[in-house]
Design a binder for these strands. Structure first.
Lengths: 223, 223
DNA sequence: AAAATAATAGGAGATATCTCATATTTTGAA
DNA sequence: TTCAAAATATGAGATATCTCCTATTATTTT
């Protein structure tokens, strides 16, 4: 991890101002932290000293079970908070957060600011919205994971992460995220190719029948 | 639904005061609503006019998919909020909430109070804690549902809902909640009986080998 | 460049879970 | 009390998904 200082710090503060998220002036307290790919922003089980706000990059939330099984719980993107659970709860089992690209965050030190943050209606209102979205999304994912086979969830995932018509996620990450074995993921991808929905093209997959995938993904929608 | 008035209302206000959750005086606005078993507190897809705070009873959150599949997402108990998503977000697909026992709630009318609530740091702080717990729990459930077979999740559920050594939940509810078929739930319950972990006793199941169940449930824990 | 590690790929058999069919028992409503 | 609906029970076969194994190819590290 690198703490970004001086001119560069100033640059980030101006380019990605978050002062509208607080009713007091927070800029002077903000540190700018930069993490490299695969670096751990928060280590599982360790209480962080900062509340983070992601301004660039992507990260992953991991949880390890006692039997050693590791589960990829969610992705984190720009404009997400990290460490909000630890701000709110005295006792909390901290999950691991790992940068999956170079990631830059504002780090809000809790020691001097905790009480002030917890009194700030503007900040709390935004945080509440963020958390309610998170809760809703997790509830939807939970429900979907129980209700539908991989075929449907993978179709949705491909459509959501495809760059144009090119799907190029890493299999290992995807099977962690969708909670299936590597073998089974390949099996369903092969089925999609066989049915002509996808075409394998070197390392990538090209979407050939978008409507069919949309139909498969469609059943995940509610209402 | 019955609106409770006068002396009875006053009784609930005194017995279950929630004034400590707000920094302004809310009592005069509070309505007390009573729902019977199986009555819908909020109908799926309909925006509620109130924020509810449950003071007695239990309810269930349901979500319906386009193919008609219905999913039981979570249980709601005393001291939970209902309808907080609709308070926070202009656009939100409302889930259905059904009372599973007689349920009494404080109903906070949004029309006159919405703005005031969203400015109240004390209220927002409590709501934030509630939502963060909810998000954490959903994340844990999601991850568990992907990582472990029914055997483990059912063991955990039995221990959590057993009344002493008696497990007496309805199968239909449980298989909705754990997201498995009725057939399979019975199959795993039969296995538990065969192994002597449970003993079927009329309509109930008696826990015979608690440690074994705890061992099965234990792998869901993290850290 | 060589060696080590991570990622991709696919076969084969086992297990978890689902669907469908059908019978019995319990519960709620007329 | 009677009848219909809901819940319980169980069998049998299908499918989704997992585990284990073994290669091959990329990507890092030395």
């Amino acid at each position: 991890m690198k703490v970004i200082q001086k001119k560069e710090r100033q640059h980030y503060l101006e380019e990605h101002s978050i002062s509208h998220l607080f009713s007091f002036s927070i800029e002077e307290y903000l540190e700018v932290h930069e993490y490299q790919r695969d670096e751990w922003i928060i280590q599982e089980g360790m209480r962080p000293d900062y509340l983070y706000y992601v301004i660039e990059g992507k990260a992953k939330i991991y949880l390890t079970y006692q039997n050693g099984k590791v589960s990829l719980i969610n992705f984190i993107n720009a404009h997400d908070y990290i460490g909000e659970m630890e701000l709110l709860h005295e006792v909390y089992y901290t999950k691991g957060i790992q940068a999956s690209t170079r990631t830059v965050c504002f780090a809000i030190p809790l020691r001097p600011l905790r009480e002030q943050l917890l009194e700030d209606a503007k900040f709390l209102r935004e945080l509440t919205k963020f958390l309610s979205m998170k809760a809703t999304i997790m509830a939807a994912k939970y429900s979907q994971s129980l209700s539908f086979p991989l075929e449907n969830r993978l179709a949705d995932f491909i459509l959501q992460t495809a760059d144009g018509n090119l799907y190029k996620e890493k299999h290992v990450t995807v099977c962690d995220f969708l909670g299936v074995s590597y073998r089974h993921l390949l099996h369903v991808l092969a089925q999609f190719c066989e049915k002509g929905y996808l075409q394998k093209d070197e390392k990538r997959y090209r979407i050939e029948k978008r409507e069919q995938l949309e139909e498969l993904a469609g059943v995940l929608k509610n209402g």
